[in-house]
Amino acid sequence: MEQPVKILIVEDEMVIAANISLQLTNLGYEVTGIIPRGEEALLHVKQNQPNIVLMDIQLKGRLDGVETVKMMQQDFDIPIIYLTANADDDNFNRAKATHPYAFISKPFKKLDLKRAIELTINQFKAKENNGDPSQDIPISPFILSDCIFVRHHEKMVKVDIKDILYIEAERNYCRIHSKDKEYLLVMTLKDMDEKLPNKHFIRVHRSFIINLSQIDEVATSHIVIAKKAIPLSKTLKEELLNRLQTI
């Protein structure tokens, strides 16, 4: 029988930590501890070796979350998911330099937590199976209400939803076309369609999902976004026009 994934919660707001612990237990994970300080977390990791650490960035005490993770990573290669109520650029960039598997902004929904953990497990299992952690393994994205975190060159990269132009199917892959970059994900367009917030996105063809706010032109059989003509399926055109009328 497979052992449950062991997760350490490092969070100094005890009400939040207890709530997270309850959610994780209900999802079938084993919580190895709830710890409010970075120094104690370092000791706990040595003794219990959890599979994942949920780390609040703004810890009180001598070490904040990012400093704690840096020290942890000197001895252990444990996937980190950051929790933060204040994702300003400075903190985000400091945290990003430690190569976390995901970020969760507080207050967060249960689904955000569930997906972040699933994404992380997916990634470290892919690393184990591949046997080469330096290999760039495209993994399912982690989707929040205003952004998507995607795996790109061994890092989690934040892509703002407002910057996504359209998403294109390539067999079992999806290619996100944003304003300045492209990201290839191991995920079908159908799965992507189910996960994306539908107030921003709509599927217009079996091979394309578009960002409604990026449409420049709607023609009889295609849509234009950033000078790209995207085919428009007859069966999906009516829904698109209805959606555009309600915006």
Rank of each mutant, 00 (worst) to 15 (best):
K106S: 06
Y101F: 08
S134Q: 11
Q135Y: 12
N129W: 00
S105W: 00
K127N: 07
G65D: 01
P138N: 14
K110T: 12
D64K: 00
F149M: 06
A95H: 05
K125C: 14
K70Y: 07
S145W: 00
I121V: 14
G65S: 05
A87L: 13
A87S: 12
I137V: 11
T84Y: 08
V69H: 03
D64H: 03
P133V: 09
I80Q: 04
R94D: 13
D75T: 13
D112R: 00
S105C: 14
E154C: 13
T68H: 06
L144D: 15
N122C: 04
D112Q: 06
Q123T: 11
A102I: 05
P138L: 11
D132M: 10
D132K: 11
P138T: 14
V66R: 01
G131H: 08
N129S: 15
T68N: 05
K70V: 14
T98I: 13
V69G: 05
D132G: 09
A97Q: 11
A85C: 09
N86V: 12
K127P: 01
I117W: 00
E128D: 13
A102F: 01
P107S: 08
E118W: 00
F142V: 13
N91A: 14
N122H: 07
R151P: 07
G131W: 05
R151C: 13
I121F: 01
R115N: 15
Q74R: 10
L144I: 07
I81N: 04
F149W: 08
D146S: 10
I78K: 02
D90G: 09
F142A: 14
H99Q: 14
